[in-house]
């Protein structure tokens, strides 16, 4: 706990000290656990534009965006090294998005997985490399999502 508390009590305030690899998260559905994914979809793609009214509301209340920033933090930690907790945190939130209807499920494909890509600038070229693919999870029903949530929270 002290390891978590010390950086909060004595923060370094090094905002954007260097622009490292930036995560992108894509998910897909599979018919079988070992199938090769063929069509990845971006998780929470950003809108083309945010209206003034929407922007003002987001200033007060923007839970989805802040959750997405947290997911990106988890992805950045996974760039540094494997962590079961971080892997589950991202999966848990994709499952919650499925449960809420934010992500439409293909009923013929009962497995879900996601991948992380690192976007970075090398010279004048922007590259994107896949760095991590999560273990596929069988979508049985929403009870599975609840169970996964509890597992992630534990």
């Amino acid at each position: 706990m002290l390891k978590l508390l010390l950086p909060v009590i004595f923060p370094s305030w090094r905002f954007f000290s260097s622009i490292g690899p930036s995560p992108r998260i894509h998910f897909t559905f599979l018919t079988n656990e070992n199938d090769e994914p063929d069509a990845w979809q971006e998780f929470r793609p950003r809108p083309a534009k945010v209206s003034l009214k929407s922007g003002l509301w987001r200033l007060l209340h923007n839970p989805e965006w802040n959750e997405t920033l947290y997911i990106n933090t988890c992805a950045e930690r996974l760039f540094e090294g494997y962590s079961e907790m971080r892997e589950q945190e991202i999966m848990r939130r994709i499952l919650a998005a499925i449960d809420s209807g934010e992500i439409k499920v293909d009923s013929a494909k009962p497995y879900v997985t996601y991948r992380l890509s690192a976007v970075m600038r090398e010279g004048q070229v922007i590259n994107q490399q896949v760095t991590f693919v999560a273990t596929p999870l069988l979508l049985v029903d929403s009870a599975l999502i609840s169970a996964s949530s509890e597992k992630g929270a534990a």
């Binding site: 622009i19 930036s22 995560p23 809108p47 987001r58 990106n72 922007i126």
Partner: peptide
């Protein structure tokens, strides 16, 4: 930490924040 970084002094780092990172709220 920005002024000691050449990329920040040239404006490249902020360009990368907008172009690469997950922070910009819209494509616009």
């Amino acid at each position: 930490i920005k002024i000691i970084n050449a990329d920040w002094r040239s404006g490249q780092a902020l360009t990368d924040v907008f172009a690469i990172t997950a922070y910009p709220v819209s494509e616009h």
